[in-house]
Design a protein around this nucleic acid. Structure first.
Lengths: 352, 352
DNA sequence: CTGAAAGCGCTTACAG
DNA sequence: CTGAAAGCGCTTACAG
């Protein structure tokens, strides 16, 4: 049970370089106040010894704390999707708080662009070392990102991406491919000549997200030369009455719709409609492992749920900041989540 | 950037109890040599302060190292399945080696029961604090487990379980349900009245594993009253010639087989056969995200792969030992892996 | 530009 | 049964 002592630390480096460990510390952290000569000598020894700093000792000795800000949509009664990333963030926090990492959460209202700006203002007023955010409002997020860049605060995107920003990393789904998978799954339940409905239930229907998913969805049919028709409907009022009204109208106009693809987690609203109107014959696919959705999955009203590990997105997003700020190691610029397929049969063991 | 000092450590406990920190340390670790009276007093203070030990400081100060043994099948040319758990173990090791955890790997030959015994003997001769193992050979594993129990060495199972052992935890698939999912997926490609072939390619065909999977598979058809026939074949010689010979014979006898379910990762052998014999019309489902399998998935010869996150099994298995031995926290007795469904469309983003 | 010393929150002999 | 002291591998003022 003895530790092998082939290990070399700052002490050994200092001994070999004929300097004090304080000077070694300065070189390791690229601090000023060391002559080029000794700096070079020390760096050579570090390389020769393949020195790996002991993070435990480092974090223990340094009384610094690292403050991270998390900016996410509020969990709403309409969809509790955002619970999952928050849970992942919490898990990460539990894991790294011993290294002196502190997390403050800021929540905005998905129905109110202005609330996003209010929260970002609060973040900028604080003194945070890094930011994890869901850039749900593209324009507003762009402005915030600019401010972060100016302050040299690193930031991470989860859930959706904004191209060409200096974000540390994006952790989330490949939306196009996810829609592609959705189409593939739907074809299992389709006749030769399909008539399919794409439903988008959201206040911001023109969001980059949904367009990407739909494009992927349509591409599958195109790539495989599947004959038929894809109808789409935007439902901007997300309350159940509006959804019911709009769906009723559509299904009345297009009686022969065989399948519905919902581009987000509101699929339970459609499932509820199908149940009430005894249209269990229509195949239904949508997004996210929410309680309501899983209930309809188990009742057979939803055929498949697609899910992009929202909890893991939160976990990894925070860990990415930890890695750069504490460990100083590199992180990939993009990390796509798996496109998980959930059915009634495998749902019991799904890990968000 | 200052650490908040609402934190209480051994020093504060000692001050309040009017003892030295050494005595506090004794109580924290349940060591002998403390009077009942002071012990009680210290424990009360610990509770009142909700004291959380600083693991960093603890591991840094303690020069102890913890030795773990890993016992897995060798990666064979026939299937590189076992690469994944090893990778996960490696990742866990990288993460916890800073806490003084050392891992030694022992590999046995899946074609040779005796090699398992040889390796367990080596493990028992060493001085390990914990064991992570795949109990592929049930009888042999039982014997080894008995020895571990006698030495009070905690052990963890991954990939397959042996019921009623004193294992710390089992981390792996729910095999019955996995077969059930396989059947469900297969039905998407089936006509009204099905004729399905279950293929088991393995030297040990009577293994608990395969029986469980097959039972789940059959149960789906039973539960849903699907009419038809399920044929099964055991292929004990796993080389490609034998596989070809046996499959040829079966498909000759049963010309109307529509779909094949392979109970393990050797599904690529069947795919290869179907390709050569121009039987791409037959649906095919099998296990595991191996390079060969994914190739056939992309070529459309395999319809679905089912996968149980082998890498994560290795990772979590090792972390479970770390949690009990280093952190002293509890772990669940069973942790079932998700039953992942992989298609050509979502394979690019799969995480093992 | 550099070093001596104190300290992070624990553990570990050693002494009594 | 208990305590004083050294030490784990770093970081941080402070002094020069």
């Amino acid at each position: 049970m003895e530790k092998d002592n082939t290990y070399f630390g700052v002490k050994e480096i200092a001994r070999r370089a004929n300097v004090s460990i304080a000077t070694v510390d300065r070189v390791i952290h690229n601090r000023t106040g060391v002559s080029e000569k000794t700096k070079k000598k020390i760096n050579e020894i570090i390389k020769a010894l393949d020195y790996q700093p002991n993070i435990l000792a480092s974090r223990l000795a340094s009384r610094k704390i690292i403050s991270l800000a998390v900016l996410l949509p509020k969990v709403s009664p309409e969809t509790d999707f955002w619970e999952a990333p928050l849970k992942g963030i919490d898990r990460a926090q539990q894991e790294i708080k011993k290294y002196g990492v502190q997390v403050t959460t800021f929540l905005f209202d998905l129905n109110d662009h202005n609330s996003f700006n209010e929260q970002t203002k609060l973040i900028l007023e604080g003194t945070f070392n890094g930011v994890l955010m869901a850039p749900s409002f593209v324009e507003e997020a762009r402005g915030f990102v600019k401010a972060c860049n100016k302050l040299k605060i690193p930031f991470t995107f989860i859930d959706s991406d904004i191209p060409d920003q200096e974000n540390l990393t994006y952790i989330g789904p490949h939306l196009f491919q996810s829609g592609y998978v959705g189409a593939k799954l739907l074809t299992y339940r389709l006749k030769e000549k399909h008539k399919v409905l794409v439903v988008n239930i959201s206040k911001d229907t023109d969001t980059y997200n949904y367009l990407q998913i739909e494009e992927g969805f349509r591409s599958y049919f195109k790539d495989h030369n599947l004959p038929g028709e894809i109808i789409r409907v935007d439902i901007k009022d997300t309350d159940s009455l509006s959804v019911t009204r709009d769906l009723k109208r559509i299904l009345h106009t297009h009686e022969d719709i065989e399948a519905i693809f919902v581009t987000n987690s509101r699929v339970s609203a459609v499932a509820s409609f199908l149940e009430k109107n005894k249209r269990g014959d229509i195949s239904l696919i949508g997004y996210d492992f929410l309680k309501e959705n899983v209930r309809y999955l188990n009742e057979g009203l939803i055929d498949f749920l697609i899910c992009h590990k929202p909890e893991e997105q939160g976990y990894r997003g925070l860990m990415a900041l930890y890695q750069t700020l504490v460990l100083g190691t590199a992180v990939e610029k993009v990390h796509f989540m798996p496109i998980d397929i959930i059915t009634r049969e495998n749902q019991a063991f799904y890990q968000n």
